[in-house]
Amino acid sequence: MSEVINKEFWKLIRQGDSKAFATLYDQYADMLYNYGYRIVADADLVSNAIQSLFIYIYDKRKNIDMPNQVSAYLCVSLRRLILKEVSDARNGNTIAFDEVVENSTFDVEIDVERSIIKSETDGATIVAFKEALSELSGQQQEVIYLKYYQGLNNDEIAAIIGSTNQVVRNVASRAIARLRNSDVLIKLVAAGTAVLLLYLIFHK
């Protein structure tokens, strides 16, 4: 996502300009919803969290310096709000927030049809890839989603998931290794190779 937020714009945010808030919301609402819903598949909860996030920013605007990357700032704030909401709803504050964070899940889910067109790859491979992605851990899926589907860098992802750049790199690396060794993808590649060999033999 391209960042069009500059210092002048953030100045308007800090002044509480309603049009600036409307613009900020218009630019990031869909991205936030898509991210939030992948953390917890509850439309009302995510909508409320997004509303709370913007109201929080408005209330605290005078103390909020312009983030290096606004999308990362919004994601980390939304993530925390959602997980806190989940924590409160589940146990009335009797289970620690950290535990909710620890056990949080994430569902990256790719769009098969659009991916087939964009990648110019056959449907079977995309479906297998989708299945392989779903087998990754929640944290791996989240890192993959933020890195490849939201275009955030390792530092920004580290800030969002409350970790370090090195950990993010390790998680991404392990996720790719796991995808590489995924049974469904290996079988598909093997089948594809066999079909290719048969094709070459019979058309020689």
Partner: peptide
């Protein structure tokens, strides 16, 4: 594949 597929919108 990661760079050329899209997450479900």
């Amino acid at each position: 594949l990661l760079e050329n597929t899209e997450a479900k919108e």
